[in-house]
Design a binder for these strands. Structure first.
Lengths: 320, 320
DNA sequence: ACGCGTTATATTCAGTTGGAATATAATCGG
DNA sequence: CCGATTATATTCCAACTGAATATAACGCGT
């Protein structure tokens, strides 16, 4: 049996030499009144996670099991984020593969057995909330420290490259802020040693107030991946409704989108888009709890998931 | 140690009970003169694949190793597709997790040690090529068989649901063909037992001419995942250039995009888009090999990868 | 009862984009 | 020199999107 044939053999008779542990990690998101929140295990300062076991029917069901066991939170919508293997643990007897998921749910469940914690994701990423304009932490803290980092090299090319990357990621030099770059921003701050994870064990120059709450291992990085995915996906799939109560006003819907994106949208334009896509339908009722004129109540039209599939249109693909 | 704490413990001291094998599977795509081609191991009728081993520095490097060993093909661009675990092999001693990747490369390498084969992906999915209009196989074969399948149930709701899903996936009833639904179409045909994989061991009603070449296990499904991902991604990231030679004409670029999407685009509109995005730059030279007026030769402006990040705009996010 | 603040809802307008069609240019082969 | 063929440039219009403005309906305090 040559190497090629050995390669394409599936599973089966192999020795234990190449066995790995597969960890399932969940980014569980639900809405607060003012911010998206992520579910954590406070004692471990970690996302809910656990090993994939033989008793699990599938990866997803294994994930649901661990999250429910650790936090009491049942999960609805789930999607896979990414699979990592290159952890820092080299030379160990067995390796760990991490399969991460994004879950969208409601915060209505009572806390589980282990005192799970819902934390605003802007506690972990203070620089990501631009709903009230560019946050001071970006202009006053991160910008100068990133410039310092860029200048901390002798190589002129590297310096320019660092400046450019920082400018793109954070919208410096009159560039636009792009909310989808959450992962790039975290990785840039990591590289510049401005987040605590990058300097563990060493001297910690990063204070929480500037660089946000950290997590164990690469969990904050996984959270950044989930945020970026969600911010991207709300633009072409109606996933926001997974985070909404069954009945809501259009402004509540708008506030949720804004909280996720970390930036504001224009009300008339937002309503136009929602209506012309026929994503919602009126319940016929109104609520006066909003302060001014009573607002119509809407519900998500689940039928759109059947009727339509939203296609991108960035290339001039002739239709019809 | 309670269950929760056990859950969040990372790797380490666990017994071998929950160990798994991790397989790496590659969808390697390169352009032919007229179609995108996928790299296979003909003897196994399979995609290149192999187990993730302790000697591998990372998942990606493991994948590169197996593909090069099995096919002689070095890989450039790689992105992760999906991680599966729920294979049909239940009850086995150890389970297999499959981590699939999409790779874009050039076909210029000589065949590897094992006679690897480049096959047009439309050999595997004859219904996906709409460059010359809707293929006959869709109208004459798949449509009636799908209707038969839809009618093959007593439940009226199920019947309507099947009809609707088929109409959405294949663009029946005056709906538009959506090239990004390659995976949904394959899964629908699988459910309707119109592809060979669905009826293995049983009576095979599906002929290759209608339902395309099959592969072992779920490899054709993984290929469909790769096609769908690529068709989606060319619309918002300049990945086409991974498949182009260093120098090319705009029509060659257009033909490549059309081959990937399986549908035609308008020439002036295509050029306008390419130019206004500044994706290419003139080499200053021309080629007369195209038949009529000599065409300008272009090269990809790698700088755009640094300058810009393309963001979607499906929600009315206020900018500035 | 009335005005005012507040929120909801509707309309308008202009700049941009994108699909589609048409026009002009340059080469080759007869 | 003509016409077939491909390349390149221009035009037109409908749809979309950002931005601003106008009107409606409630609570509240006076």
């Amino acid at each position: 049996m040559d190497d090629r044939a050995k390669g394409i053999r599936k599973g089966g008779a192999g020795g234990k030499a190449n066995d790995v542990n597969a960890d399932l990690i969940a980014v569980v998101v639900a809405m607060d009144s003012s911010a998206p929140c992520v579910l954590t295990i406070p004692q471990a300062n970690a996302l809910p996670s656990g090993p994939f076991e033989l008793t699990h029917r599938s990866l997803q069901s294994g994930l649901r099991g661990w999250v429910e066991q650790q936090t009491g939170q049942p999960l609805g919508y789930i999607e896979q984020l990414y699979t990592f293997a290159d952890r820092d643990r080299v030379g160990a007897d067995d390796r760990v593969i991490s399969i991460s998921y994004l879950a969208l749910t409601h915060q209505d469940e009572a806390g589980g057995s282990a005192g799970p914690h819902w934390g605003s994701w802007y506690d972990y990423f203070p620089w990501e909330d631009h709903r009230s304009g560019t946050p001071a932490v970006v202009l006053d803290e991160l910008r100068p420290r990133l410039m310092e980092w860029a200048d901390g090299t002798d190589d002129g090319t590297t310096r320019l490259d660092r400046r450019r990357r920082a400018a793109i990621a954070f919208g410096f030099d009159d560039r636009h802020w792009n909310e989808e770059l959450a992962l790039q921003r975290y990785e840039l701050l990591y590289e510049a040693a401005l987040v605590e994870e990058a300097i563990r064990g060493g001297y910690s120059a990063a204070s929480t107030s500037v660089s946000g709450r950290s997590m164990i291992a690469d969990h904050r990085r996984i959270l950044a991946t989930g945020i970026a995915r969600l911010r991207s996906k709300i633009k072409y799939r109606p996933v926001v409704f997974e985070l909404m109560p069954p009945i809501f006003t259009l402004l509540q819907l708008q506030r949720t989108v804004e909280a996720l994106a970390g930036r504001l949208v224009r009300k008339p334009n937002f309503r136009r888009l929602i209506e012309q896509q026929e994503l919602v339908e009126e319940t016929g009722e109104t609520t006066a709890e909003t302060g001014g004129r009573p607002a119509q109540l809407f519900r998500f039209r689940h039928a759109v998931l059947d009727e339509r599939v939203i296609a991108g249109t960035k290339l001039p693909l002739a239709r019809g």
